[in-house]
Design a binder for these strands. Structure first.
Lengths: 192, 192
DNA sequence: TCAAAACATGAATGACGATTCATGTTTAGC
DNA sequence: GCTAAACATGAATCGTCATTCATGTTTTGA
């Protein structure tokens, strides 16, 4: 499963990157093992040296997305002074990351149907972290009192939808602008 | 394709309802024609009298969801006095509808991968309508000036995420409460 | 009442593609 | 430089359905 030589590590990584591209652009069902191995310049059988099957590669990519997202957001937040500012920096970093790796993001969304368990835990973990942050901000008096679980899911929903629209569907607009508009809504709401 | 007798109409409808249930619970890939026809107490071949194939049934369900959602929201909004109130009533009605037909909602989400064209037009239409409403509210001075396209996608994202979480994943909480919390966030933002 | 149209059946067909495996090649470490 | 382990190959296998179709049954309308 895990490679023991440098050569093996390279090959495994090459297959993962090919799978990211192929799954992300054609979707899980339409992507064949042949597509992935062709993209990786590899024989079909080689894939089964490093992975149990089609689904396992996919799941591994979902996990990868989880790690990277956590890293990216943690990094972005670390410089923040207030909780609300952390919110803003986290959103901005997330959107930039998704625009850089739209395939990986699409894979996470498809996980809802291909690997529902991974999908659920992915988002429930994020929601919990989000909620904890909101709770702290609430205790610190930065934000108004409300149901922070519902708020956490709502805020995640904003990030998901904007990522889907402005990183995957229509990646032409400036991401900082998107983040600014969204954060203004999050901070101040709609009301004049 | 379209039935010409009452008997045919009943059969077609029965198959559609079976497909809604089967696609919604097992997902498109795992759902077999046999599963659907078994659920509908029908022979496999009968399905092909009324539908071109597996994908076409699916697409028809996506369209159905579009019609119903539009109806439900239009109905809910019709009683509203202000644009912001329309926002609230629309959100509430949407969440109730999704809790009543979670399978239909899951199907729309899976359409992103099964029928991307239908999916894209579904959400772009909603976004446009949403944006138009926001534009009017802005002109009426009810809400602050900002980029209403981005806002529209953000607000749709809230509705999608809350529907997914509180209608599909965890349907135990009171939907009016969910809608109230979300609308408070939309109206006033987080800031104290 | 009866013929034609509409509807219904479900076993057989056929395509597709994930996975396996018998056979080679390369690398690590002594 | 040798050999065992690790890695690589790709054609053949095998299971899984979606779809078809030859054969019945029911409904319609005159």
């Amino acid at each position: 499963m895990k490679p023991k030589t440098k050569r093996g590590q390279n090959r495994r990584e090459k297959i993962l990157r090919a799978a990211e591209k192929v799954f992300g652009t054609m979707g899980f069902a339409d992507a064949s093992i042949t597509d992935i191995t062709r993209e990786a310049d590899t024989a079909q059988g080689t894939l089964y040296i490093y992975f149990k099957g089609k689904e396992q590669i996919f799941s591994e990519l979902v996990e990868e997305m989880g790690h990277h997202t956590r890293e990216v957001i943690a990094q972005a937040i670390s410089k923040s002074t207030s909780r609300l500012d952390a919110e803003k920096q986290g959103l901005r970093a997330f959107l930039h990351f998704v625009r850089e790796r739209p395939e990986l993001y699409t894979i996470v969304e498809e996980a809802r149907f291909v690997d529902p368990v991974a999908y659920k835990s992915y988002f429930e973990n994020f929601a919990k972290a989000y909620q904890t942050g909101l709770e702290a901000a609430q205790l610190a008096g930065e934000i108004r009192d409300s149901d922070n679980e519902v708020r956490a899911w709502a805020l995640m929903g904003i990030a998901k939808a904007l990522g889907e629209k402005y990183a995957v569907m229509d990646p032409s607009k400036d991401m900082d602008h998107i983040a600014d508009v969204a954060f203004d809504l999050i901070e101040n709401g709609l009301r004049r």
